[in-house]
């Protein structure tokens, strides 16, 4: 056992509370922005925490069709997400844990989706199965876009370790900035789809037939639901964190900043994305199901552009 670095302890001390507070704050800010723009007061900022507390105290009503998969999924997915939150470089100062290989991270996200789909099919509910089928459809569309965006970044850094990719190395000019910008846009658009947020799916409707993620967790209640809700908020925070990191790399000026300012910027960036998403959700409408591929195509275009530049980098001058 090597000796603990005091810096390492500080990192954990900031990191662990932010794992609980940040997801609540992101979701709260998003909802609050939407509410204020619609002339409502809206729920408190930390509503997610109150919800979690309430759900923890409740009993669970389970379907008579389920097997062990249903409840384990909630716990398993959250544990994988916590693992990802330790592995992915979504905050500047985050303590590192083991490998953060790009493909590993992508496939852990895929594993989370796999179990979510199974849990939806487990309850024998036609609504949940609809949701699962849609989630699978969206995922096949969005996966190439997400993968290409990350792969372009990896080619830019010549390493597939995300912690190396997101290191603040000296920026090599416009090309690198463009790669970061396009990849950031690609990841942002893809994460809207992955999280089933607005133009793809409206999480606030109450029509099970049209929804994606909310339909899949229809049968969950009590503590299982609490785990799923928190997991979704955490996933959102991690993805937004990655997007923020991408956009921070676009500007060479940011790279030169001190660590403290970078930490502050990465927190503010996540919250900024949450607020702008809130504004966007008020202004936009949910797309018809058949129009969704048109939207996701933009994510893939961003990924393709990023990889186009990444491929040519160094060969042309």
């Amino acid at each position: 056992m090597k000796e603990l670095d005091p810096n390492e302890i500080y990192r954990w001390l900031i990191f662990l509370p932010s794992l609980l507070i940040l997801p609540a704050l992101v979701l709260g800010l998003l909802r609050k922005t939407k509410a204020r723009l619609q002339n409502r007061i809206g729920a408190p900022l930390f509503q997610l925490l109150f919800d979690l507390k309430k759900l923890s105290g409740k009993g669970e009503t389970l379907s008579d069709a389920i097997s062990w998969i249903f409840r384990s999924t909630a716990a398993l997915n959250l544990s994988m997400l916590l693992l990802l939150s330790l592995v992915c470089p979504w905050l500047v100062f985050k303590p590192a844990l083991g490998t953060s290989d790009l493909f590993y991270v992508m496939y852990v996200f895929a594993a989370i989706r796999f179990f979510t789909l199974l849990a939806a099919l487990d309850s024998a509910s036609p609504f949940a199965a609809f949701g699962a089928s849609r989630e699978a459809t969206l995922s096949i569309l969005v996966e190439p876009a997400l993968m290409l965006s990350f792969a372009a970044l990896a080619v830019n850094a010549k390493s597939s370790e995300l912690s190396r990719v997101f290191e603040f190395a000296a920026n090599s000019g416009v090309e690198a900035s463009a790669i970061w910008a396009f990849a950031g846009m690609g990841i942002l658009l893809s994460s809207l789809v992955e999280l089933s947020r607005m133009p793809i799916d409206d999480p606030t409707t109450h029509l099970e037939l049209t929804m994606v993620h909310e339909a899949m967790i229809l049968e969950a209640s009590g503590r299982t639901l609490a785990l799923l809700e928190y997991g979704q908020a955490l996933r959102m925070t991690i993805l937004f964190g990655l997007v923020t990191q991408c956009f921070m790399h676009v500007f060479p000026a940011v790279i030169a900043l001190s660590l403290g300012l970078k930490v502050l910027l990465s927190f503010l960036g996540i919250l900024f994305i949450a607020i702008s998403l809130g504004i966007f959700e008020v202004l936009s409408v949910k797309l018809r199901w058949r129009r969704n591929p048109d939207f996701i195509a933009y994510a893939l275009t961003m990924g393709l552009l990023a990889s186009l530049i990444a491929v040519g980098k160094g060969l042309l001058s």
Partner: peptide, 18 residues
């Protein structure tokens, strides 16, 4: 050729223009 695919074609053609 649906518009999204046309867009991806254009990106690939941009690569060709390279």
């Amino acid at each position: 050729l649906a518009p999204p695919l046309a867009m991806h074609c254009c990106v690939l053609l941009m690569g060709l223009s390279y």
